[in-house]
Design a protein around this nucleic acid. Structure first.
Lengths: 296, 296
DNA sequence: CAAGATATGAAACTTTTGTTCTATACTCCC
DNA sequence: GGGAGTATAGAACAAAAGTTTCATATCTTG
């Protein structure tokens, strides 16, 4: 106790008993640390809980260093020893812990539930997280195995894959382009740079595949590209929010994705998860057949 | 020892490794316990956390009993010793604890996801959905209210917002650019088109904000831009997977995001959800203050 | 390239911690 | 009220953990 008081009195040591401050100091001094100390530093940032309640030997093993290194680390950051530092993490764990006792737990819950109306930033995040989780689960439930397999097959058969997604759908197309380019598949992102959408899409031909992403309100340009692809006998996969959308109607295969939406800000979580599934499944099919190795 | 073995054989004792079940047993047998054991029992129900991470001596003092009494208590409830029982509370603490448990889940997901060959496309999707859900929950648990508010404030104060995210982080930057452009904030996407990254980033100045997104392996160019922003006295928000990343170290504010990862295919779910929260919170703040209406 | 400084690994050492043991106190029943 | 059985405290013991030391390796610097 007297020790703690001494510490609090010392202004240079205020950082000592605050995990967040310690984290900051670790980050700050990270570059100047020795290699082994860096290992410990990284581990401390990654697994603060372990620091709090595992023994030195265990922590040391996980960091792949000697126990003595942990002690050195603690001393480097101004603690008497490793135990001294561990107290810090332990206290933090206790203070953040959800269940100090039943009574406290219930009280905490009620307090948190009470101020949802206030819409603090973290409440907002909580809502988005819940919304996105729901969207992902919906995706999982509604997406049919055969459609996924057909999508993968279309990618596999295509000579080249064209990606289009404008405005809010652009990140999906960009993600697909990035991921597919790490397989050996020839991949073109139709981005409309320099107003050359027409020129870019005029490259498509029979044997090619267009993956078009668009959500209400549908970009006319995206619909135009889908139509052009159809006329040029290219295959089309649509990722859209409705099978009735202008994108979906002329597509060979349509994935209907219901993403979370808040006001008019649409999330892309489910769309990206679908994209991820298609690409990775395709990549693995490659390794399975060719013995090759997909890169990303 | 033999006692413990007998117990494991007893199906009714599966409850051994579940804190909730232990609590129930304590309550159930409470009346039949000796006075000192009652003291320990009451303390165990009230302060499960202490049971998990204090030493026997400390717990004993708080219960006002001898350390040996704690051991007897543990044995009374079928454990090999006090340490054996403590493991239980410790695990519980870990599993309820906000940060690393979800990180572990994500890690577990990443490890499990290793063998895809056997999986059908829909199994694959199911795994990704689960992985992304874990990542979202982790984001929700670990992101601090103050950091979100600070991020929103930085956006609000900025004269102009620059976005950078190269390679696999590009969709995040693109999403932010799209969303922010639907507020009245001046927004520039540093995309490196025509090799003009240097020129684009040389536009930043004091009063501006750079939001940089980068994940391991960090793109050198992104780090360069962050450094340039710092030199030009612009503020920097980093979205990265570690506070030790080259992006994060010079940032004024760092959001640490653990996205699900499959081999080297990184998901962007959590990053996008964070981006979404920042932008919408900012937009919401605008309406609250100006009575205006954000569009997207 | 050598000398000094620094960092590291392994083992010895010390302290702390958990567990067991035994004498004593207490309770309950005869 | 006395004896058998149980509970408790405290000390002794054993195990485990944390810390220090020292020899070796590595990196700097003149």
């Amino acid at each position: 106790m007297t020790e703690a008081q001494t510490r609090q009195a010392d202004p240079a040591m205020t950082a000592r008993n605050n995990v967040e401050a310690l984290r900051a100091r670790i980050v700050q001094r990270y570059e100047s640390l020795s290699p082994r100390l860096k290992q410990v530093a990284a581990y401390a940032l990654e697994h603060p809980n372990d620091l709090g309640l595992e023994t030195l030997a265990v922590i040391a093993k996980r960091c792949k260093v000697q126990p003595s290194t942990i002690v050195r680390f603690a001393k480097t950051f101004g603690y008497d020893g490793a135990s001294d530092m561990q107290k810090l993490f332990r206290d933090e764990l206790l203070s953040l812990s959800p269940s100090p006792s039943y009574a406290d737990r219930i009280r905490q819950f009620n307090e948190r539930a009470g101020d949802v109306g206030a819409h603090s930033a973290s409440d907002l995040m909580h809502e988005f997280v819940q919304g996105n989780i729901a969207a992902l689960q919906h995706l999982d439930e509604t997406t049919r195995q055969e459609e996924l397999e057909r999508g993968v097959a279309l990618i596999a058969e295509a000579q080249a894959v064209y990606l289009v997604g404008l405005r809010r759908s652009f990140p999906v197309a960009a993600y697909l382009a990035y991921a597919l380019r790490h397989t050996e598949k020839r991949t073109y992102l139709v981005d409309g740079l320099a107003g050359m959408i027409a020129e870019q899409s005029s490259m498509m031909g029979p044997g090619d595949l267009l993956i078009a992403t668009s959500f209400r309100p549908y970009a006319q340009q995206t619909a135009d590209i889908v139509n052009e692809a159809a006329e040029r006998k290219a295959k089309v996969i649509a990722i859209s929010d409705s099978r009735l959308s202008p994108i979906a109607r002329r597509a060979d295969l349509c994935f209907e994705v219901k993403d979370a939406e808040f006001r008019k800000f649409r999330s892309l979580t489910a769309s990206l998860c679908l994209a991820q599934t298609l690409v990775i499944r395709y990549a693995y099919q490659l390794t399975a057949h060719d013995g090759g190795s997909p890169q990303a």
